[in-house]
Design a binder for these strands. Structure first.
Lengths: 121, 121
DNA sequence: TGGTATAGTATACAAAAGGAAACTATAGGG
DNA sequence: CCCTATAGTTTCCTTTTGTATACTATACCA
Protein backbone atom coordinates (compact mmCIF):
# COMPACT_ATOMS: atom_id res chain seq x y z
CA UNK A 1 0.00 0.00 0.00
CA UNK A 2 1.48 3.34 -1.02
CA UNK A 3 0.68 6.72 0.41
CA UNK A 4 1.40 8.27 -2.96
CA UNK A 5 -1.16 6.13 -4.80
CA UNK A 6 -3.74 6.82 -2.13
CA UNK A 7 -3.03 10.46 -2.76
CA UNK A 8 -3.65 9.97 -6.47
CA UNK A 9 -6.98 8.36 -5.73
CA UNK A 10 -8.04 11.03 -3.29
CA UNK A 11 -7.09 13.86 -5.60
CA UNK A 12 -9.43 12.47 -8.21
CA UNK A 13 -12.54 12.53 -6.05
CA UNK A 14 -11.92 15.05 -3.28
CA UNK A 15 -13.31 18.53 -3.18
CA UNK A 16 -16.31 20.15 -1.62
CA UNK A 17 -18.49 19.18 -4.57
CA UNK A 18 -16.67 16.72 -6.77
CA UNK A 19 -17.91 13.46 -5.33
CA UNK A 20 -21.40 14.94 -5.04
CA UNK A 21 -21.48 15.17 -8.83
CA UNK A 22 -20.65 11.51 -9.15
CA UNK A 23 -23.90 10.31 -7.61
CA UNK A 24 -26.40 11.87 -9.97
CA UNK A 25 -24.16 10.68 -12.79
CA UNK A 26 -24.26 7.15 -11.42
CA UNK A 27 -28.04 7.17 -11.53
CA UNK A 28 -28.48 8.74 -14.95
CA UNK A 29 -26.82 7.68 -18.16
CA UNK A 30 -26.36 11.29 -19.25
CA UNK A 31 -27.09 14.61 -17.62
CA UNK A 32 -27.18 18.17 -18.85
CA UNK A 33 -25.52 21.07 -17.07
CA UNK A 34 -28.66 22.59 -15.58
CA UNK A 35 -29.99 19.18 -14.70
CA UNK A 36 -26.91 18.55 -12.56
CA UNK A 37 -27.24 22.00 -11.07
CA UNK A 38 -30.79 21.25 -9.98
CA UNK A 39 -29.71 17.93 -8.47
CA UNK A 40 -27.04 19.51 -6.32
CA UNK A 41 -28.60 22.16 -4.12
CA UNK A 42 -26.37 25.07 -3.23
CA UNK A 43 -23.78 24.64 -5.94
CA UNK A 44 -22.95 27.71 -8.00
CA UNK A 45 -22.39 27.64 -11.74
CA UNK A 46 -18.74 28.44 -11.29
CA UNK A 47 -18.21 25.56 -8.92
CA UNK A 48 -20.20 23.17 -11.06
CA UNK A 49 -18.14 24.12 -14.10
CA UNK A 50 -14.80 23.88 -12.34
CA UNK A 51 -15.56 20.56 -10.66
CA UNK A 52 -16.84 19.06 -13.91
CA UNK A 53 -13.67 20.21 -15.65
CA UNK A 54 -11.53 18.54 -13.01
CA UNK A 55 -13.46 15.30 -13.31
CA UNK A 56 -13.03 15.54 -17.05
CA UNK A 57 -9.30 16.13 -16.67
CA UNK A 58 -9.13 12.90 -14.70
CA UNK A 59 -11.17 11.18 -17.41
CA UNK A 60 -13.85 10.23 -14.93
CA UNK A 61 -16.53 12.18 -16.74
CA UNK A 62 -17.19 12.61 -20.44
CA UNK A 63 -18.43 15.88 -21.90
CA UNK A 64 -20.34 15.92 -25.13
CA UNK A 65 -21.20 19.24 -26.75
CA UNK A 66 -23.99 19.53 -29.31
CA UNK A 67 -23.61 22.36 -31.81
CA UNK A 68 -26.99 23.86 -31.12
CA UNK A 69 -28.50 27.06 -29.96
CA UNK A 70 -29.42 27.26 -27.17
CA UNK A 71 -26.39 25.14 -26.22
CA UNK A 72 -26.69 21.51 -25.19
CA UNK A 73 -23.98 19.69 -23.30
CA UNK A 74 -24.27 16.20 -21.93
CA UNK A 75 -22.18 14.83 -19.10
CA UNK A 76 -21.80 11.17 -18.31
CA UNK A 77 -19.61 8.86 -16.28
CA UNK A 78 -16.78 7.46 -18.40
CA UNK A 79 -15.87 3.78 -18.37
CA UNK A 80 -12.86 4.68 -16.28
CA UNK A 81 -15.11 6.67 -13.97
CA UNK A 82 -17.23 3.57 -13.40
CA UNK A 83 -14.19 1.80 -11.99
CA UNK A 84 -14.64 4.05 -8.97
CA UNK A 85 -17.92 2.42 -8.02
CA UNK A 86 -16.47 -0.33 -5.80
CA UNK A 87 -14.46 2.25 -3.89
CA UNK A 88 -17.44 4.52 -3.41
CA UNK A 89 -19.39 1.50 -2.25
CA UNK A 90 -16.77 0.60 0.28
CA UNK A 91 -16.49 4.16 1.50
CA UNK A 92 -20.22 4.35 1.90
CA UNK A 93 -20.22 1.21 4.00
CA UNK A 94 -17.32 2.37 6.12
CA UNK A 95 -18.88 5.82 6.48
CA UNK A 96 -22.02 4.30 7.92
CA UNK A 97 -20.04 2.10 10.32
CA UNK A 98 -17.94 5.09 11.30
CA UNK A 99 -20.97 7.25 12.03
CA UNK A 100 -22.42 4.46 14.17
CA UNK A 101 -19.11 4.05 15.98
CA UNK A 102 -18.91 7.74 16.81
CA UNK A 103 -22.52 7.77 17.93
CA UNK A 104 -22.06 4.98 20.47
CA UNK A 105 -18.79 6.53 21.63
CA UNK A 106 -20.53 9.81 22.28
CA UNK A 107 -23.35 8.13 24.16
CA UNK A 108 -20.80 6.48 26.42
CA UNK A 109 -19.13 9.80 27.04
CA UNK A 110 -22.44 11.31 28.10
CA UNK A 111 -23.04 8.40 30.50
CA UNK A 112 -19.61 8.86 32.01
CA UNK A 113 -20.16 12.57 32.43
CA UNK A 114 -23.38 11.83 34.34
CA UNK A 115 -21.58 9.33 36.58
CA UNK A 116 -18.89 11.85 37.36
CA UNK A 117 -21.57 14.36 38.16
CA UNK A 118 -23.10 11.95 40.68
CA UNK A 119 -19.72 11.15 42.19
CA UNK A 120 -19.01 14.81 42.78
CA UNK A 121 -22.50 15.42 44.18
CA UNK B 1 -24.58 3.48 -1.78
CA UNK B 2 -25.19 6.86 -0.16
CA UNK B 3 -23.48 10.11 -0.98
CA UNK B 4 -23.84 11.17 2.62
CA UNK B 5 -21.98 8.14 3.98
CA UNK B 6 -19.24 8.59 1.43
CA UNK B 7 -18.98 12.11 2.72
CA UNK B 8 -18.60 10.80 6.27
CA UNK B 9 -15.81 8.53 5.16
CA UNK B 10 -14.02 11.23 3.22
CA UNK B 11 -14.25 13.75 6.03
CA UNK B 12 -12.40 11.35 8.28
CA UNK B 13 -9.34 10.99 6.10
CA UNK B 14 -9.24 14.06 3.87
CA UNK B 15 -6.99 17.02 4.33
CA UNK B 16 -3.64 17.99 2.98
CA UNK B 17 -1.88 15.95 5.66
CA UNK B 18 -4.33 13.70 7.45
CA UNK B 19 -3.92 10.56 5.41
CA UNK B 20 -0.18 11.09 5.29
CA UNK B 21 -0.11 10.60 9.06
CA UNK B 22 -1.86 7.28 8.77
CA UNK B 23 0.99 5.57 6.94
CA UNK B 24 3.77 5.97 9.48
CA UNK B 25 1.23 4.93 12.11
CA UNK B 26 0.45 1.78 10.14
CA UNK B 27 4.10 0.81 10.15
CA UNK B 28 4.86 1.58 13.78
CA UNK B 29 2.92 0.42 16.80
CA UNK B 30 3.38 3.78 18.52
CA UNK B 31 4.99 7.03 17.48
CA UNK B 32 5.95 10.17 19.30
CA UNK B 33 5.15 13.68 18.10
CA UNK B 34 8.60 14.56 16.80
CA UNK B 35 9.03 11.13 15.33
CA UNK B 36 5.93 11.71 13.19
CA UNK B 37 7.16 15.16 12.31
CA UNK B 38 10.42 13.71 11.01
CA UNK B 39 8.56 11.11 8.97
CA UNK B 40 6.42 13.71 7.21
CA UNK B 41 8.67 16.21 5.49
CA UNK B 42 7.28 19.70 5.17
CA UNK B 43 4.62 19.48 7.84
CA UNK B 44 4.59 22.23 10.44
CA UNK B 45 3.96 21.68 14.13
CA UNK B 46 0.67 23.49 13.87
CA UNK B 47 -0.56 21.26 11.07
CA UNK B 48 0.71 18.11 12.73
CA UNK B 49 -1.11 19.00 15.94
CA UNK B 50 -4.36 19.96 14.27
CA UNK B 51 -4.47 16.92 12.00
CA UNK B 52 -3.68 14.58 14.88
CA UNK B 53 -6.48 16.17 16.89
CA UNK B 54 -8.92 15.64 14.07
CA UNK B 55 -7.91 12.01 13.71
CA UNK B 56 -8.33 11.66 17.46
CA UNK B 57 -11.78 13.28 17.28
CA UNK B 58 -12.74 10.62 14.77
CA UNK B 59 -11.29 7.95 17.06
CA UNK B 60 -8.88 6.83 14.38
CA UNK B 61 -5.82 7.64 16.44
CA UNK B 62 -5.15 7.19 20.15
CA UNK B 63 -3.13 9.71 22.13
CA UNK B 64 -1.34 8.66 25.28
CA UNK B 65 0.31 11.30 27.44
CA UNK B 66 3.03 10.40 29.94
CA UNK B 67 3.31 12.75 32.91
CA UNK B 68 6.99 13.45 32.40
CA UNK B 69 9.24 16.34 31.77
CA UNK B 70 10.23 16.79 29.05
CA UNK B 71 6.82 15.68 27.82
CA UNK B 72 6.24 12.33 26.16
CA UNK B 73 3.18 11.62 24.04
CA UNK B 74 2.59 8.47 22.07
CA UNK B 75 0.28 8.23 19.10
CA UNK B 76 -1.04 5.00 17.68
CA UNK B 77 -3.70 3.76 15.33
CA UNK B 78 -6.85 2.80 17.22
CA UNK B 79 -8.68 -0.44 16.55
CA UNK B 80 -11.31 1.57 14.74
CA UNK B 81 -8.57 3.28 12.76
CA UNK B 82 -7.33 -0.10 11.59
CA UNK B 83 -10.69 -0.72 9.96
CA UNK B 84 -9.59 1.84 7.37
CA UNK B 85 -6.84 -0.40 6.07
CA UNK B 86 -8.91 -2.23 3.42
CA UNK B 87 -10.13 1.10 2.07
CA UNK B 88 -6.64 2.55 1.93
CA UNK B 89 -5.52 -0.63 0.21
CA UNK B 90 -8.22 -0.32 -2.39
CA UNK B 91 -7.54 3.36 -2.94
CA UNK B 92 -3.87 2.63 -3.37
CA UNK B 93 -4.64 0.04 -6.01
CA UNK B 94 -7.09 2.28 -7.82
CA UNK B 95 -4.67 5.22 -7.57
CA UNK B 96 -2.00 3.20 -9.35
CA UNK B 97 -4.42 2.09 -12.06
CA UNK B 98 -5.65 5.65 -12.42
CA UNK B 99 -2.15 7.05 -12.81
CA UNK B 100 -1.42 4.42 -15.46
CA UNK B 101 -4.67 5.22 -17.25
CA UNK B 102 -3.88 8.92 -17.37
CA UNK B 103 -0.35 8.21 -18.55
CA UNK B 104 -1.45 6.15 -21.55
CA UNK B 105 -4.17 8.69 -22.33
CA UNK B 106 -1.61 11.47 -22.39
CA UNK B 107 0.73 9.47 -24.59
CA UNK B 108 -2.07 8.98 -27.09
CA UNK B 109 -2.80 12.68 -27.07
CA UNK B 110 0.83 13.45 -27.85
CA UNK B 111 0.75 10.96 -30.74
CA UNK B 112 -2.40 12.56 -32.11
CA UNK B 113 -0.89 16.02 -31.87
CA UNK B 114 2.11 14.81 -33.91
CA UNK B 115 -0.18 13.30 -36.54
CA UNK B 116 -2.09 16.54 -36.84
CA UNK B 117 1.19 18.37 -37.19
CA UNK B 118 2.17 16.11 -40.12
CA UNK B 119 -1.22 16.50 -41.75
CA UNK B 120 -0.92 20.25 -41.67
CA UNK B 121 2.65 20.20 -42.97
C1' DT C 1 -38.15 45.02 -30.14
C1' DG C 2 -37.90 42.48 -26.18
C1' DG C 3 -38.11 38.07 -23.56
C1' DT C 4 -36.70 32.99 -23.14
C1' DA C 5 -33.51 29.32 -22.88
C1' DT C 6 -28.66 27.06 -22.21
C1' DA C 7 -24.09 26.79 -20.80
C1' DG C 8 -21.17 28.96 -19.53
C1' DT C 9 -17.25 33.58 -18.17
C1' DA C 10 -15.73 37.45 -15.56
C1' DT C 11 -15.21 40.11 -11.63
C1' DA C 12 -15.18 41.22 -6.93
C1' DC C 13 -15.32 39.77 -2.53
C1' DA C 14 -15.44 36.64 1.80
C1' DA C 15 -14.01 32.72 4.24
C1' DA C 16 -11.17 28.90 5.20
C1' DA C 17 -6.87 26.54 5.04
C1' DG C 18 -2.13 26.53 5.49
C1' DG C 19 2.64 28.38 6.55
C1' DA C 20 6.42 30.87 9.27
C1' DA C 21 8.11 32.15 13.25
C1' DA C 22 8.06 33.24 17.95
C1' DC C 23 6.60 31.85 22.45
C1' DT C 24 5.30 28.46 26.52
C1' DA C 25 6.33 25.06 30.41
C1' DT C 26 9.75 22.62 33.18
C1' DA C 27 13.16 19.03 34.74
C1' DG C 28 17.92 18.01 34.32
C1' DG C 29 22.83 19.07 33.04
C1' DG C 30 26.97 22.01 32.84
C1' DC D 1 22.18 31.10 35.16
C1' DC D 2 21.69 29.43 30.82
C1' DC D 3 21.05 25.50 27.53
C1' DT D 4 18.69 21.35 26.04
C1' DA D 5 14.74 18.58 25.04
C1' DT D 6 9.57 17.69 24.08
C1' DA D 7 5.11 18.82 22.75
C1' DG D 8 2.78 21.87 21.95
C1' DT D 9 0.13 27.16 21.45
C1' DT D 10 -0.20 31.84 19.52
C1' DT D 11 0.03 35.33 16.27
C1' DC D 12 0.27 37.10 11.89
C1' DC D 13 0.40 36.59 7.10
C1' DT D 14 -0.39 34.39 2.43
C1' DT D 15 -2.69 31.26 -0.53
C1' DT D 16 -6.43 28.68 -1.82
C1' DT D 17 -11.44 27.95 -2.03
C1' DG D 18 -15.76 29.25 -2.45
C1' DT D 19 -19.77 32.69 -3.09
C1' DA D 20 -22.51 36.25 -5.29
C1' DT D 21 -23.65 38.68 -8.99
C1' DA D 22 -23.46 40.37 -13.47
C1' DC D 23 -22.44 39.48 -18.12
C1' DT D 24 -21.84 36.76 -22.78
C1' DA D 25 -23.68 34.50 -27.26
C1' DT D 26 -27.54 33.43 -30.26
C1' DA D 27 -31.64 31.12 -32.21
C1' DC D 28 -36.55 31.14 -31.55
C1' DC D 29 -41.05 33.17 -30.16
C1' DA D 30 -44.54 36.78 -29.59
Amino acid sequence: MSECQVNNALEAIVGKWKHKLLFPLLNNETMRFNELKREIPGITQKMLTSQLRELEDHDLVTRKVYAQIPPKVEYSLSEHGKSLIPILDMMSEWGAAHAAHLATRNEEQIKNTRKEGKEHA
